[in-house]
Nucleic acid binder design. Structure first.
Lengths: 192, 192
DNA sequence: CGATTCTTTGAAAACAGTCAATCTGTGTGG
DNA sequence: CCACACAGATTGACTGTTTTCAAAGAATCG
């Protein structure tokens, strides 16, 4: 499945054949089965992860035991707690698989070295960061300005492919509403 | 006030004297009076802005005329719609001054050239981007997991300095709640 | 099929929003 | 210096939305 990663790299940057090999060679493929953790709250995250297959999520669990999903990642997305990786502090997030999945792991050290030694890689990562920031900004805007129903509709517009793969209760969590509310919201939408 | 910018640069990256001058020399100082726009919805943003004095905000106005504040920026913060600057699409945000302010403007072209010609600048910008992303991520987490009161308390912990300078109604908007709700929340907190 | 997970539904309670009125502090012009 | 206007904050009464809790119904999987 390293091919998925290589194909992705080709599409995202101007890599020479050599550089491509260099990047791909440091990645370690790992299978993560449904419900299995990639990293857990309290761990110090050591790896950046690129999803080659399946679907994972980043989330926290509060005192009441309620899960709050911060992100989903499917094929061709990156996942991982940048904060913990960079700072070396324990992560506050859990990451686990929603489907049987496969990821390409790159350790912090190797990742940082790639950023220095392969300019195309560095540029690619910064582009992704830039895009991630805009997506986050956008999501914040939905939280401060939209109702539950509008948030769901906006989610469908942007991430309809996720809607097919992820349980509704998790989408509700991602939107910051309860599963019951989402169920009712959907009923309302269908009615019209 | 360009000195504020230079001091900031010195603290944020390993610049030679030359590089420092090069960066500072492309910045154009602009005064923005209270309530004056820096950019308006529909404009194509042309400049990155660094705040040397005062306080500005990024916000949208919905169909009902309600303002939704996405960000504040005070001294030593950057502000500007990266999306519009990069893509050349009209901005969906308004940026205006909350206090009489002063910003250092750097045009897209000059900014991009600095990123290429001054590695320290490029690194600094990417560091800021990384940090901005983490802050945004964190804010998203407050939206999906906290009540109005908890969001306000969390805001106070992180941005008490803003609390002193920004009207409550704007903080409410930033938190995605109404001014009335914030007022009641504060009353509750004082009671205890 | 039985077990488990996910979704839907109902009723009541909690929470936040709306609208309108009042209060407070600040600054301006006469 | 006072009167007045204005912006911002508070309060009350009411409405509407969302959550909570509990139970019942689908759907999925071994």
């Amino acid at each position: 499945m390293i091919e998925v990663f290589k194909t992705y790299l080709k599409g995202k940057g101007n890599y020479t054949e050599e550089e491509l090999e260099k990047v791909a060679s440091v990645a370690v493929i790992k299978k993560v089965r449904k419900r299995q953790y990639l990293t857990q709250e309290g761990d110090v995250a050591k790896n950046h992860a690129f999803v080659t297959k399946g679907c994972l999520r980043t989330y926290t669990v509060d005192e009441k035991g309620i899960e709050h999903i911060l992100n989903f990642a499917i094929e061709n997305w990156w996942i991982g707690d940048r904060e913990s990786i960079q700072t070396g502090h324990p992560s506050i997030y859990n990451i686990d698989a929603i489907e049987d999945s496969e990821v390409a792991l790159i350790s912090k050290e190797k990742f940082d070295r790639l950023c220095i030694e392969v300019p195309a890689f560095n540029d690619m990562i910064n582009n992704i960061l830039q895009k991630s920031f805009l997506v986050a900004q956008n999501r914040i805007h939905t939280f401060i300005s939209l109702t539950a129903e509008e948030k769901y509709l906006s989610f469908l517009e942007k991430f309809s492919h996720l809607n097919m793969r992820v349980p509704q209760s998790m989408i509700a969590s991602y939107l910051g509403i309860t599963a019951e509310t989402l169920s009712r919201v959907r009923k309302q939408i269908v009615k019209r």
